[in-house]
Design a protein around this nucleic acid. Structure first.
Length: 663
DNA sequence: TTATTCGGAAATTAAAAACA
DNA sequence: GTTTTTAATTTCCGAATAAT
């Protein structure tokens, strides 16, 4: 009668199906020196209504479990399905997941089953906002009473919505289009709005602000000659600003989505500082609502669940992107959330004409690739290149790098840029057009992630020569890739997008253009810095050509925006600088023997020198036995000790700091 | 020899149904 | 209100497999 069962197994034991114990860390974790963390039990968390009432008569057979995928295993929800040949991702993510419960959360636990309704708690952190329940239906009131301005006429509003969908929805999806449209139509028809819909209205305004920027002004003029897009945009922005704090306090899904859109809108308005801050507000609001943890959502309508996931992943990606672009730590750490990938809803079932690949979903099933797959792949990409580490270590970077390479292998043909022809006219086929845009931005983002990953090393000549692949040098020719090589390859591949001018032109009329321009700009800066660090290298011409192609891409996709103009100017300047330095270099070398004058330290040289300096003279051995390269000598050469004593490298170096060292 | 993985049996538990 | 039933969800045995 040994009561041998433990009330809750730790994360590791649970995953490995081993017998755990009540101590923390448990004996097994101690034995294997693993981190021992608790996992929240879904069963204990189940709320009233979470289970479907059964038609209890005679069930005969046990029905299949509804949801076999245990969504609260964080590894499942965070790690994309890239588990290639044997490379299992370690406990890293699992073990770090901590659930921080607020005081108010404990209050709820305490009174569960003892109080039908909780009393007022709006003054307590994490309590329920006061005006939530009191705002029962009510009657429709004119919009002007709620926010002080009118919406434009129905045709204009719908045109702007369409413009928004084209410009942003394929790239960052923040709502379910059919529901959104239905709600909008009701408002337009009744010319009134429920007071409880205020946050929806503000989200709509944000949509219109972006729509107005990307819509065709002639079409608008023909619909309503009085309508002035620029002026309206200013008015709407002001209206949203007047109410933004109100809706953030209200904490609805729409308020978070609105904050995300405003962040983008500010970026387009050249208010980059506000954009940064606004995305932070949105992230925080999302966390306050618990959107980062599905287990707290309770029972929701299936569409609502998916929309929440969409919003969460969108804000996560915006937050990470903006943080990286600014070189600041991001607010939303990967390890502390628990939201599954968004799935397809009825509005995203379109597939790519001509290609019919399948995608492995989070739950292991195979589904056709749809126009929404892009969002899932992008989300995976973002969670791989984990931005949480404010300071990072080389082994971590190598691991991330390996995962990036694995991720790339999983990308379906629909989302590969090479699948699209360079001179095809995309405009005729909407789906094809969207897929090509997605493929291009996905590839650029992937390469950009490499640049960001290695960006901290740009200022350190020592690190540029570090090899990226541990383990034996196999048949793979890239096994000797150094950080410098990879930066070079990625930046060059980014520059190759200028071949797809047809796609770039369309892309210039979407919100993703801003991101693309910035990514190209980054690639340009990286190429320039590489070029300057090895002026005599045979790669120099390629660097310059790459820069030229990036400048061209910026001009095409930037469509005359200030961001693209300024980037082009700076990159041009960098080109001149490189040429000038090159001339100096040539002159100074003119009278000397052709051998090295360089003080830079490329790895190939290092290996050779190592082999010689050790007196063996056996270059072969040095190259084919990676241990020799990765052993003590290597690190001494680099003034470093392996692993533990390795100094931390700050990740938060902004592009501007890199730039400053350029000029 | 030791560690990891995983199918699935057995145990546990919240909710629903039945009962009083 | 209490007890019983049901089904979802958990723990962890034990056998297979992989790593050392």
């Amino acid at each position: 009668m040994a009561p041998s069962r433990v009330q809750s197994a730790c994360a590791r034991c649970r995953r490995q199906k081993l017998k755990c114990d009540d101590t923390r860390p448990c004996q097994l974790c101690i034995r294997s020196e693993a981190e021992c963390t608790d996992v929240v039990n879904k069963r204990r968390k189940q709320t009233i209504g979470a289970r479907q009432p059964q038609n209890r008569k005679r069930p005969e057979h046990r029905p299949l479990p509804v949801n076999t995928a245990p969504s609260d295993d964080p590894r499942l929800s965070l790690q994309p399905q890239i588990v290639p040949s044997g490379t299992r991702v370690t406990d890293l993510v699992t073990s770090q997941r901590e659930r921080a419960h607020s005081t108010f959360h404990h209050v709820q636990e305490l009174f569960r089953n003892h109080m039908t309704t909780l009393r007022d708690s709006d003054a307590i952190p994490d309590g329920t906002p006061a005006n939530k329940q009191s705002q029962v239906p009510g009657s429709r009131i004119p919009i002007i009473e709620l926010i002080g301005i009118q919406l434009p006429s129905a045709p204009i509003t719908l045109t702007l919505l369409d413009a928004y969908l084209q410009a942003n929805h394929w790239y960052l999806s923040l709502f379910h289009e059919p529901s959104f449209r239905a709600r909008l139509v009701t408002i337009l028809q009744t010319e009134g709005i429920l007071p409880s819909e205020k946050s929806f209205l503000l989200l709509l305004l944000a949509v219109l602000i972006i729509g107005a920027r990307f819509s065709n002004h002639e079409t608008l003029h023909s619909l309503d000659p009085q309508f002035n897009p620029q002026q309206s945009r200013t008015i709407w922005i002001e209206a949203v600003e007047n109410h933004i704090f109100w809706i953030l306090q209200e904490a609805t899904l729409e308020s978070v989505a609105c904050a995300v859109l405003m962040s983008i809108a500010y970026l387009l308005e050249r208010k980059t500082q506000l954009s940064f801050t606004m995305s932070g507000l949105g992230s925080r609001a999302a966390q306050a609502m618990g959107i980062h943890d599905e287990t707290t959502w309770g029972h929701l309508d299936p569409i609502e669940v998916q929309v929440r996931r969409r919003v969460w992943w969108s804000i996560y990606m915006v937050d990470v992107y903006i943080a990286q672009a600014y070189g600041k730590p991001s607010i939303l750490p990967t390890v502390q959330f628990n939201v599954s990938e968004p799935e397809d809803l009825d509005d995203t079932l379109a597939t790519c004409p001509g290609i019919g690949s399948y995608e492995v979903r989070e739950d292991g099933t195979f589904k056709p690739v749809t126009i929404f797959s892009y969002n899932r792949y992008k989300a995976q990409l973002y969670s791989i290149a984990d931005p949480t580490a404010h300071s990072i270590r080389l082994p971590h970077i190598k691991r991330t790098y390996a995962r990036l390479l694995d991720w790339e292998k999983t990308v379906p043909r629909e989302l590969k840029l090479d699948s699209f022809s360079e001179n095809q006219n995309m405009i005729n086929d909407a789906a094809l057009c969207v897929f090509s845009l997605q493929a291009l931005t996905l590839q650029v983002t992937y390469d950009y992630k490499h640049l960001i990953l290695f960006r901290p090393f740009l200022l350190s000549k020592k690190y540029l020569g570090v090899r990226l692949h541990d383990g034996p040098v196999e048949t793979q020719d890239r096994s000797n890739t150094t950080i410098r090589d990879q930066l070079f390859t990625s930046a060059l591949r980014m520059s190759s997008i200028c071949r797809w001018q047809n796609i770039l032109i369309i892309l210039g009329n979407t919100t993703s253009a801003a991101q693309l321009c910035f990514q190209c700009f980054t690639a340009g800066v990286v190429l320039a810095m590489l070029a300057l660090s090895e002026l005599s290298s045979p790669r120099l011409p390629e660097c310059k050509q790459g820069l030229a192609r990036l400048i061209r891409s910026l001009e095409v996709a930037g469509a005359g925006s200030p961001l693209s103009r300024q980037s082009v100017d700076i990159l041009m300047e960098a080109m001149h600088l490189i040429s000038a330095e090159e001339v100096k270099e040539l002159v100074s070398r003119a009278g000397k023997p052709a051998e090295d004058v360089r003080s830079v330290l490329p790895t190939a040289n290092l290996v050779t020198r190592l082999a010689y300096s050790r007196g063996t003279g056996d270059i072969h051995r040095a190259i084919h036995q990676p241990d020799a390269v990765h052993g003590q000598e290597m690190w001494e050469e680099l003034d470093l000790m392996p692993d533990e004593s390795e100094p931390e490298i700050l990740n938060s170096i902004s592009l501007y700091q890199s730039l400053a060292s350029l000029f």
